[in-house]
Design a protein around this nucleic acid. Sequence first.
DNA 1: TAATTTTCTAGAAAAATATTCTAATCAATC
DNA 2: GATTGATTAGAATATTTTTCTAGAAAATTA
Lengths: 224, 224
Amino acid sequence: MASPARKPVVPDYTVKAGAHERTVKAGTRQRALIAALALFDAQGVEATTIEQVRDAAEVSIGSLYHHFGSREGLVTALYEDLLERYRIALMAELSKHDTPRSFLDTFVKTHIAWSVRHPDAARFLAEHRYHRAVTMAEAKLQRGTAEFMRPLMLLFRPAVEAGILKPVAPDVLISLVVGPVQAWLRSHRAGKASLRPDLAAKQLADTIWDAIAVPTTARKTRKT
Amino acid sequence: MASPARKPVVPDYTVKAGAHERTVKAGTRQRALIAALALFDAQGVEATTIEQVRDAAEVSIGSLYHHFGSREGLVTALYEDLLERYRIALMAELSKHDTPRSFLDTFVKTHIAWSVRHPDAARFLAEHRYHRAVTMAEAKLQRGTAEFMRPLMLLFRPAVEAGILKPVAPDVLISLVVGPVQAWLRSHRAGKASLRPDLAAKQLADTIWDAIAVPTTARKTRKT
DNA sequence: TAATTTTCTAGAAAAATATTCTAATCAATC
DNA sequence: GATTGATTAGAATATTTTTCTAGAAAATTA
């Protein structure tokens, strides 16, 4: 029934260069995902039918069901595909930094920049972060937010012990970092943001730092 | 087609007192909404059919369509109904406070407490905050997050001018307040929260305050 | 209260949509 | 170049949503 092995590793994405629109022919699965994202972004997930995906992707119904098992399977597959792209983009940047502060700056900046550059993907991911099927799939895969947060926690925990970050619960710490960024992006998507993304990223990173860091004036050395 | 006037004002909700389960008979519309919420919470929105709602609510298909116009109409109506309840509960608490700090504390505490007390409603609202139909309905009604944030901004703007709060963009300010709370609730729903809700509320309010407030050590009087 | 109008309820019929199934094609391996 | 497994195709089937017509209840008017 469900697709058996098929690694979630993302194959070569179709990129069109500027005006030439040189859409490299991709495999059935990839074509379906691309078409689905476009449709979902334009009219919402609930409103798009399998037939619309078939027409847009020029793929038969049979192939669609062969690859994704069901309508919901398509949605979940797209979510995982996009999440993986996002994760790779984020990790590539994060790996360059190793202090809590630069880590935070980079996280906020990269997250926002990526979301602005890929509005359709970012919107889809945001809309579906809360979805049942996705949540369950994440739970099974041990992925999702938790996965992204692991390196963050790895870096933050020692900082907490060193007295650089406040001794708040890990989930509170993560919420303070991730929450504002997601909330701002939502307002940005809704057209209610007053700031350019890069400026907002700056303000967010600065203020979030004040939320999580022990003020330098009050900082004492601990343990030794 | 669509329901014409029918005020979104919420009629008397069915409450069952303790073990006696005295479910007061409510109107068709209300029965449908209650049944829908239970089904949505148990199996997700996409997975529940109109027929299931009909059976659970003991209401005919015709009535369902008469009241809500469509399947999506039911979802939207439920969203608006629950949002209104939440809004009323929140405003009742917020109206008692008039300094930025106590306002923040109350907002965080009330939001979390209400979400914990009404897990099904809170989860539904969270899942659908990002939904297309709901977003559009909100835009039309000028409601949603913006509505809640108005009193908050009304209080915060002067505080920014007085130098008590940092001079950050309004949307950033709101994101800093709302984002962490929503993010924490999500982790709580997923069973990943390590803290009791009331303690988390305390930590969140304290840290969010540090994010948005000008530190007392650096506070200068402005404008006279 | 009786007549009249409007709103609401009912469920069968129709339309739209998702899923299954069987056969045909393609690609790789022996 | 046969055999095997994976993929594609789309007609047939099953499920689900929506419409439609008629009757019941409630509200309104006389």
